[in-house]
Design a binder for these strands. Structure first.
Lengths: 245, 245
DNA sequence: TGTGTTTCTCAGGCAATTCACAGGTTCCGC
DNA sequence: GCGGAACCTGTGAATTGCCTGAGAAACACA
């Protein structure tokens, strides 16, 4: 089932109307906290664990609908944790967190079963989007919830990563896509540059805040060029997207 | 739940009808006092703490619905305080106070979970508005409360920062917007220039008092021009806004 | 390794915004 | 009707915030 939150965003719910449950497993507390914050904001119920043993225990009693699992844990190998989790929760989808250079082929094999992964450092938008995808496809939430965001004549498909305006296909780079997704998930709402940076860029990004301006400018070139603009600047406050009308 | 106070203002209440609780954490007593006064005036119940230890203790027994947290505390780092607060109160939204120049380094990730921040020196209107937004979105208060202020045919949306009169869109600058928001949150009530200066301008503003007159004049040009005026001067007392009728 | 793509920094330019100042207008008591 | 206080608003200067071109660095992929 999907429902509309007071913010106007669409959130996933389980068939019985209760919130989706997600277990977050990572040994760095700053990461579990960051993820917990962001995922709670999605309206989900979160538990976290710092090692494999704790993960299995928590999973047993918490019965999550999805798991975020760091492959690098102090007490056991990621695969071992996965094995034990699977014994408790055979059908629950897992989102793996891995270091970029540790991108071994074994991950590729793991995701064949419908699981997914993101590399550290990740952006929150990416984690949230992938989790939504996993949960949606696993059937824990209502399957009718679909993967297309629509604002005016602008459409963005989260599964195929296709974007079009008034029927014309538009090619976006990865960052442009995430930025647009964030805007479109919060239509008619002013988003500050800090908010955008926090959600769309990875958590260790240390650069200039004006990348946001730059990417807004890129998006405008591709989306608004020669049409009624949909992306608006609220000077001193941030940016927002809304139907052209 | 929202209700209308004897003063005619709309205030947030918790679902059980009791007042919203806010914890204010700052080491400068002048700041906690300033904030406590302003927030009490909103009808909220306030406690304050001057350091991280006190904050965690107070949070434990006071169970606030929102926290205002200075990131610069004497005894612990702001992030450490945040971590401990989160362990006590996982779902409570936090409004961070930060120095303007500290914006680059530390802020990363702070707004990610739906939290928010304001930079020092802030205006009270801004703090109150953001807190209301956080509380509204967190669901501590009734979800029906929405983000639009209406006075007569004048509408102001706090999410999209859009303002319209009789359907016509009106563009306001940041300061004009805050001034109008303050007026509209106190309709039919005379607000003195001193009150306006204290609420809308930042607490360290040292300029001429006649900026208020100036900005009232700007607002009139945009809102009342060629229509029944809604902004009225009470000579010797202040200004008030009310429906044109 | 080479080529095209993507990400990001830097800095110049421009326009919006804020605010002080000062002269003009309105109001009110007498 | 007069004078002074309170208020209004035009002008312009300083500042701020935003936009965008150019190019360097990182990356992806053959």
């Amino acid at each position: 089932m999907t429902t509309t939150s007071p913010q106007g965003r669409t959130e996933l719910l389980r068939p019985d109307g209760s919130p989706v449950r997600v277990l977050v497993v990572d040994d760095e507390q700053s990461i579990t906290e960051l993820l917990s914050m962001a995922l709670r904001y999605e309206g989900w119920q979160i538990r976290s664990a710092g090692d494999g043993t704790g993960a299995v225990q928590t999973a047993r009693e918490f019965r999550p609908d999805a798991v975020v699992l760091d492959m690098m844990l102090p007490d056991m190998d990621g695969l071992a944790v996965l094995g034990r989790l699977r014994r408790e929760l055979p059908d629950v989808p897992v989102l793996f967190l891995t270091a970029k250079d540790a991108l071994e082929d074994r991950i590729a094999g793991l995701t064949a079963g419908g699981d997914d992964y993101v590399t550290k450092p990740f952006s929150l938008e990416e984690v949230v989007a992938r989790l939504r995808g996993l949960i949606r496809r696993s059937g824990a939430a209502d399957r009718r919830s679909d993967s297309t965001l629509v604002v005016g004549d602008l459409m963005l498909d989260e599964d195929s990563h296709e974007v079009s305006r008034a029927g014309d296909n538009i090619h976006l780079t990865a960052t442009e896509f995430e930025l647009l997704r964030f805007l479109m998930r919060n239509p008619r709402r002013v988003l500050s540059k800090a908010q955008i940076l926090d959600r769309v860029w990875s958590y260790d990004f240390g650069g200039q805040a004006n990348v946001v301006e730059l990417y807004i400018s890129y998006l405008r070139r591709k989306i608004d060029a020669g049409r009624e603009p949909m992306i608006h600047t609220r000077r001193g406050a941030g940016y927002l997207i809304k139907p052209a009308a």
